[in-house]
Simulated assay, not measured.
Amino acid sequence: MTGKTHIIGGITASLAFAQITNYDPILLTGAGVVGAVIPDICHSGSKIGRTLPALSEIISRLFGHRTFTHSLLFLALTAFILESFVTVEALSAGLLVGMLSHIVLDMATKRGVKLFFPFKWTIRFPVTATTGGASEYLVFSLLSLLTVYFGYGVFLPQ
């Protein structure tokens, strides 16, 4: 998936999560956007990879693309670090929700992810989208509609 699809996925997931929590939806959603791009730190051409090129290069050389940073292990380590150092729960939750949305979206591509890293098993959905193709455009459109739906539920409650 491209960066814009990951970003709208992070927004959608954060707004959906905001409906079932008491976290500040603005903080949650902002952190969700950041979290949605973090897993691609392993790819030098990604938005975050271009922002932090040295770190991206190191992670890419150590692990490759869609391995460690797209795994449950990375999510668990990030959760532990956030729990230890971040006092605002909405920020921690948003980052993790955004990261999870990224991983789920990449599971919907032909390349899939190494969800159970260090095991080399590739996990992907039975039906996949082509990155940058018409199917990704459809996913982006559906996520945009869900963003409006969940945003309405969060910001204009009944």
Rank of each mutant, 00 (worst) to 15 (best):
L82C: 05
L72W: 14
A90K: 01
G132Y: 11
M107N: 03
V97F: 04
V104E: 01
T128F: 09
S60A: 13
H102K: 05
K110L: 11
K120M: 11
R111Q: 14
G64K: 05
L82Y: 11
F140H: 09
G132A: 13
V88L: 10
T67F: 01
S92M: 06
L138N: 03
T87W: 13
S71E: 01
V127I: 15
S84C: 06
A108S: 13
D106Y: 09
F140D: 03
I58T: 14
I103T: 05
L75T: 04
F63K: 02
A134K: 11
S60K: 14
P126K: 06
G64P: 07
K114A: 09
L77I: 15
R66N: 08
A134N: 08
I103C: 01
I59R: 03
T131L: 10
L95I: 15
I59P: 06
S92A: 15
F125A: 14
R66V: 12
I59S: 00
H70G: 05
F116I: 09
E89C: 00
A76V: 14
L95F: 05
T67V: 13
H65W: 12
F68P: 01
S101N: 09
T128D: 02
I123C: 13
V113C: 04
P126M: 09
H65D: 08
S84R: 08
S101L: 10
H102L: 00
V97C: 00
I103D: 01
F85G: 02
H70F: 10
L100Y: 01
K110Q: 11
L95A: 01
T130C: 03
L75Y: 01
M99Y: 04
T109W: 09
M107I: 10
S141R: 03
G98R: 08
T131E: 08
Y137E: 07
D106K: 03
V88K: 14
L105C: 11
V113T: 08
T78N: 07
T122S: 04
H70S: 09
R124F: 10
V139G: 01
V86S: 06
F74S: 02
L138R: 00
F74P: 03
G64D: 08
F140M: 03
H65R: 10
F116K: 07
I58M: 12
F74H: 01
F116E: 13
G133S: 06
L73Y: 10
V113A: 05
L75H: 03
G94D: 10
E83L: 12
L115Y: 02
S84G: 09
M107Q: 11
F125M: 12
F117K: 04
